[in-house]
């Protein structure tokens, strides 16, 4: 009887260990995402650019970015991404990591003040209809000084899930890629919350990770990595 009890407890302990689940990964083209999104810059103004490299799974990787310009008479750029507008015209900047490059055209003017793309969007969450999961409340995105923040108001309430993430997306009925503490940014979604949500009700806000331009996405969406979309808000 003692042996059976030990066998029983051993089986219980082994079977109750944390195991590994493998999930299919979305393969995308590696890219360099440049922020802030500058629409124009006035002569003699300086702006600090930053670049984020995302690999072929859309995950950010810490890579050295080589900055350069093909129009050095119009705009200059330092090795760490500080640009200076020298004279009016169309400046062309280039960010390179290995074989991946990203080009940004910037209009330099003498009269129009420097303009950094702003995002002021908001929406109301509605449930996605996946089972009985619900999301209510409002969400807003505000950009100030080139940094964006996403906020849900005090009426926000979501069904409890052990693996729930906030994303910006362009569709509401797919599966999405996330990674703890390393936001996944691909063509259709961008991960906002770096870790699983541990609070499901009330006002909260998140800094939008570097490299994500909120203007590129239509929805704020709550996604559970166990399967369903809980709910989403169309951003207007």
């Amino acid at each position: 009887m003692k042996k059976m009890l030990l066998l029983f407890l051993g089986t219980f302990l082994i079977s109750s260990c944390i195991k590994t689940d493998f999930v299919e990964e979305v393969v995308v083209a590696p890219q360099i995402l440049i922020t802030p999104n500058i629409t124009s810059i006035k002569v003699d103004d300086k702006i600090q650019l930053s670049g984020v490299f995302t690999n072929n799974y859309g995950r950010t990787e810490n890579k050295q970015i080589l900055w350069s310009t093909t129009t050095p008479e119009i705009i200059s750029i330092s090795p760490n991404g500080l640009i200076t507008a020298l004279k009016a015209g169309e400046g062309v900047l280039k960010a390179v990591v290995s074989t991946v490059e990203s080009i940004r055209n910037i209009k330099i003017t003498t009269d129009v003040p420097t303009q950094i793309g702003s995002t002021n969007k908001s929406g109301s969450f509605k449930s996605a209809g996946s089972g009985s999961y619900t999301v209510t409340g409002d969400v807003s995105i505000i950009t100030e000084g080139g940094k964006s923040k996403i906020t849900v108001n005090d009426k926000f309430k979501a069904s409890v899930g052990p693996s729930l993430f906030l994303l910006l997306t362009n569709h509401t009925n797919g599966s999405y890629s996330v990674m703890a503490n390393n936001p996944v940014i691909n063509g259709t979604s961008a991960q906002i919350s770096l870790t699983r949500l541990t609070k499901f009700e009330g006002s909260m806000s998140w800094d939008i990770p570097q490299g994500i331009d909120a203007n590129n996405y239509k929805y704020a969406l709550l996604y559970c990595t166990l399967g369903p979309v809980f709910g989403f808000a169309e951003l207007k």
């Binding site: 944390i18 195991k19 493998f22 999930v23 990964e25 052990p162």
Partner: peptide, 22 residues
């Protein structure tokens, strides 16, 4: 009562995506 949520890894890359919790 013991509840566990398994860790997840990318099927292609093997990268740890989310640690497990218990």
């Amino acid at each position: 009562v013991r509840n566990v949520l398994n860790e997840t890894r990318g099927a292609q890359s093997g990268t740890l995506l989310e640690p497990g919790i218990e």
